[in-house]
Design a protein around this nucleic acid. Structure first.
Lengths: 330, 330
DNA sequence: TCGCTGCGCTCATACGTATTAGCAAATACG
DNA sequence: CGTATTTGCTAATACGTATGAGCGCAGCGA
């Protein structure tokens, strides 16, 4: 079922079929033949071959999205946001998960598939060698590089807001749970946290700064370490919600009451945060918004339009107070 | 950077480049020229254009996956499993989320992109009209149709195992929370549940069979209704884990102790089930396994290989006892 | 010396679409 | 009525790859 078949059926040439169906407005086509072609196409159930179109147009109208971990709900939200925008614009979305196959490899494969651009989330710039990305439209999510376009949340603000919230509740012994990651976002969350505490005249014993992997089990192990310090912190900020969930688990297992004995603040506001008991106080990072904005940025770039409105400033983050934080009781 | 460029650089024809790089084993190529071509390709950083290849081979080496709801962790796990298998086999994965755009529309778009096959999950056969799928390799996940190939979990067994578990704990007043969905999986989970109860001589008042949407808020609302019955059920089976999480939330808000006052069993075993407090007792449905098997089935079909081993029987489900179920106390 | 047989490579073409140049007929203009 | 101009369509080509047919050449036997 090709354009030639439609042409034959309508008694015109393939060129005419293409002109009619591409909807090129400045194409001069008689009303009668336009009707005949549309009718024939409908009758035959014609669907254009986008590979052929892509080949000649040198645009595939597809974009790729590579995430570091498809099991992390934060990234699936990013994907979800990007997919929505892309689909709305009639773009296809090719997915890559960097757990088994490195991000750089995914990017090259997507390039072979001639995607018009690639969104990369949760992957540092150092994991993407130059030769990987030459001649490719890349947008980084939450990894400001200065050299590549990207969208980001205000990670330092996330740390600051967590700190201020706990400080306002009267807490002064404050712990941090997060990965020793080169990822910009994690570094900035930590930096914002530390700076806000310093500014408030709060000292930070090194035992209160615990390194863990950015996963639930990491948070669990990290919180165990934190609970074994003496005196314990009365408030903890976790670098992301998965870590916070692990921390809550560790508290429950150790018989430590949240928020009675210790207050916990997460970061991301994944959906799960609302469903655990007690509900997690966290910093909302608009994951879906980041994905959507990344896709929009890419699409604007491809159309050669102005992208200033999207690259300008970071997406705001917001404190969401739920049940894991309370005024210091002792 | 095309095969012609590599050819010019190596002093051979484009055909030769193709023969060398396609690695066609029965191609007769001299060792010297093979080396020259490989060297040239490496030097120029040549990457073949898969659109062109797909056009001539009439195979894109890509497959599509359409899910009903990308925010449901169960489906992201299905996607994750399929992506892994596909990537391993050098296939691309095109993603479609059926919340904004109907599944049938996604399938047609994927067909235009010439995917070699499509995996559809969480979507009933009735949502896919015949003309949508003609000439297309479809695999349905958890929606046995008899007419299309598919992979499925043993949904009736899920219902039965939930029932037996609660019966063994001494519960006799048993409620069900689930959608009035045409989806085969939900129907079978319910049927297995009902049959096992009947078989045990357990009557099921219609007030104990509550219809809700298959979401957290649906489960929350449903559980509220169930808690207002008199006498209350002492055990509840939820059609999936999201519903169960909502049910737990409703209990917490109503001051009803789980599992002290009421036992709750979910279905799917999404990751979240382990992180809520109390941890959710549930029926493990191997989502990632389903996705992986669907992808393998598709790949085997495309290679014209035998698929008997994969289509034969449903994937087993398994009771995972955690903390939301306990022996009937009163 | 002359066929004959593999070997190693190239030529030509096809895949299905978009697009430019151009042709014939119709229309407008002086 | 003759000449521009516009209208409506087609022919031809390109996109980058795979692949079957075919060609020159070396080696080999007679």
């Amino acid at each position: 079922m090709t354009g030639h078949d439609v042409a034959a059926h309508a008694g015109v040439s393939q060129s005419t079929v293409s002109l009619v169906l591409s909807g090129n407005p400045r194409a001069r086509i008689g009303e009668a033949t336009r009707e005949r072609v549309l009718e024939a196409a409908r009758e035959l159930g014609y669907r254009p071959n986008l590979l052929a179109r892509g080949l000649v147009q040198r645009r595939s109208f597809a974009l790729g999205i590579v995430v570091s971990d498809l099991d992390n709900p934060f990234f699936t939200e990013v994907v979800s946001g990007a997919e929505r925008v892309a689909a709305e614009a009639d773009y296809g979305v090719l997915l890559g998960d960097a757990r088994e196959i490195p991000a750089a490899e995914h990017v090259m494969r997507l390039a072979e598939r001639q995607v018009d651009g690639v969104i990369v989330a949760g992957v540092g710039l150092d994991a993407l060698p130059d030769e990987t990305r030459e001649g490719l439209n890349l947008v980084l999510v939450d990894e400001p590089s200065g050299v590549l376009p990207g969208v980001a949340s205000d990670a330092a603000a996330a740390g600051r807001k967590a700190a201020r919230h706990l400080l306002e509740l009267g807490h002064t012994r404050l712990g941090f749970l997060g990965p020793a990651s080169p990822a910009h976002t994690f570094r900035m969350r930590e930096r914002g946290w530390v700076q806000a505490l310093r500014q408030a005249g709060c000292t930070i014993p090194s035992a209160y700064l615990v390194r863990t992997s950015a996963t639930v089990s990491g948070g669990q192990a990290g919180m165990r370490r934190l609970l074994s310090t003496d005196p314990r912190p009365t408030g903890v900020f976790c670098a992301n919600d998965l870590v916070a969930l692990g921390a809550l688990k560790a508290c429950a297992q150790a018989g430590v009451k949240v928020p009675g004995h210790i207050s916990v603040v997460g970061c991301d506001d994944i959906e799960m945060a609302r469903y655990v008991t007690p509900e997690l106080t966290t910093i909302l990072v608009p994951a879906r918004g980041l994905g959507a904005r990344a896709a929009r940025l890419l699409l604007l770039t491809l159309d050669g339009r102005d992208t200033g409105a999207l690259t300008g400033k970071a997406l705001g983050v917001e404190l969401v107070v739920r049940e894991t934080t309370a005024r210091r009781s002792i």
